[in-house]
Nucleic acid binder design. Structure first.
Lengths: 200, 200
DNA sequence: ATTTAGTACGAACGGTCGTGCTATTTTGCA
DNA sequence: TGCAAAATAGCACGACCGTTCGTACTAAAT
């Protein structure tokens, strides 16, 4: 099964391209050249461009899980875990070794009017992520780390806003202040929900 | 000068395409077909694809100015004008007659790793917009509508986050709750800066 | 030892892309 | 009304797109 090696190489290379230039930049020709394969040789591994894109999304999930979710889950439930999760989330793609930005965020803006299987998958990932965030906020509320009347959905929504602002500040403006600004916004959001400032 | 008419028609059609599918979707062939021109006939108006893209960005600015900035400026200085500006900003593209999302927001995510004149222009627009927002926040502070120690840059940064979250909620998830969530976040942000709740 | 499956290649397909060059039509003015 | 100029069409180009095909070579299964 030498294919596994090759496939992995292709997907790793493709993930970098996806991260830097979005889905549109992942063409079979360029990917073949970058990996030293022929177009048809590479194509045989996926049998369609759509399948390649889905494979790349899957790999993105695995990467994010390893780099964000798993380490965050090692923290105690409630606010500490939420803080860890969000802290690992913001800017995770560079720490995961990607030379560009978050593939899912980019895909969301790229596909907002392009129906299809890939868009559907991205929507799924986004929803799963929101659910994960929601669960942590919920737990923080239940444990009394946040006000009982906190609107968890609103908190998740605003966290996404901070993430997107961080993403675009970092990747488009290339302003490293993004981290500080995001941290400030995060602390303000959680304090508004009654978090003890000492735990932020 | 029949050209003016035709050019206007092309740009209007192109703006819809740009709004719905991003810069990548604006191809000379498709645009020619949509306007009933020949590829070369349309091409003659702009002499390069880059020039066409820049022309579309210019038109976006004119549209945003008419639909967002001008009406907002008719409000009294300080917090009222800031509130009007932000209110007109969120979701402005649909109210301006575009069938898709904000062209600038989409371009920012599309071009984050693609250097060139177009990217530079988008960066300029983004910066000008932040300056405009900043000026309004600044004025609200000077007029005592917001706390004197308010960090105007931070406010602008978070406003952008709310805008992006609103944009993606509306256009990708197609969730009309976006308006309510954005309003909630906006009110919270301004209250944190000492705005009188009666004026929100 | 022979068949089978996996892996990769080169060539070619119909399309679309942006961009030139040269006609032809249409327009606005003397 | 005639004519120069402006506006548009027609056609061709090279490049790249995703995809298919036929064909090797290799490793595993029979």
């Amino acid at each position: 099964m030498k294919a596994e090696t090759t496939r992995t190489r292709v997907i790793e290379e493709g993930l970098q391209t996806l991260s830097q230039g979005g889905l549109a930049a992942v063409t079979i020709g360029r990917l073949a050249e970058a990996t030293g394969l022929s177009k048809s040789g590479l194509f045989a591994h996926f049998r369609s461009r759509e399948a390649l894109e889905l494979a790349l999304l899957d790999e993105t999930v695995r990467l994010a899980w390893r780099n964000v979710v798993e380490p965050a889950m090692r923290n105690p439930e409630g606010l500490p875990r939420l803080m860890a999760l969000v802290g690992l989330w913001f800017g995770w793609s560079s720490r995961a070794g990607l030379r560009g930005g978050c593939p899912v965020a980019a895909a969301m803006f790229e596909l907002d009017d392009t129906p299809g299987v890939v868009r559907d998958r991205v929507a799924e990932l986004d929803e799963e992520w929101r659910r994960l965030l929601h669960a942590q906020v919920r737990q923080a509320i239940d444990l009394g780390h946040l006000h009982a009347d906190t609107d968890a959905d609103q908190v998740v929504w605003e966290l996404r806003g901070i993430y997107l602002a961080h993403h675009s500040t970092m990747r488009f403006q290339r302003d490293p202040d993004a981290d500080r600004r995001a941290q400030t916004a995060l602390v303000a959001l959680l304090q508004r929900c009654g978090a003890d400032p000492a735990n932020l």
